[in-house]
Amino acid sequence: MTRYIQRHSLMKRVIHGIVAVSCAVLIVSGFIVFVPVLGRAAGSDVVQVLRILHRVFAVSFIVAPLVGLIFAPKGFVHIMQNLFAKWDEDDKKFMMLFPKYLFAAKTTHMPKQHAVKSGQRLADLALIAASVLIAITGIVLWAGQYVTPEVFRISLLLHDVAFVLIAIIMCAHLYLGAGIFQPYRGLHRLMFGNGRVSEAEARYHWGHWAEEELASGKNVIEE
């Protein structure tokens, strides 16, 4: 018999899935416009289709998290509490060791972590900030005919800055979250599977959190 902990709810996984697909389409379609050489090679008809797709998926990118916020406000508060949780010694040590861990995982021992690893808290905050920025500036660009050229120019620049941030963070997020990084293999099931994590995995990744969950037993499943 194996013990599992339910780490992510169905709603969280569905919203994450919608945002992930939207983000992928937005990055690809945005990249074609971002690099004129690509857009010119693709031709204006293809670019026009991509621009429409960009707007359709921009809506799902923005609306999906808002739906989550409306229907599960407690979940949103919980996410925010985790992101802004005070850093303890293990958090600081984790962050200090993480660069070494990335390149020498076999010889690096990482400290226990709470519900969200300290490094991920930083990455998530940067990702959320960049996402809010890209959403707001995207709406301004969409309404471009109603704003002054100066506002349009600044929005375009900030949209590009946010795009660069998101593209870079997503590379790391994909590498770690999809379990391409060997010590993290299997983690993709957390968001793209049933949202459960085995006791051993939980202890390995989030030691403090696993102990709390196992002690409370609230989200523990035995199969």
Partner: peptide, 13 residues
């Protein structure tokens, strides 16, 4: 990340 991947190949928990 590519270098990281190569160094982590064969990792056993």
């Amino acid at each position: 990340l590519g270098v990281s991947f190569l160094t982590a190949i064969g990792y056993e928990r």
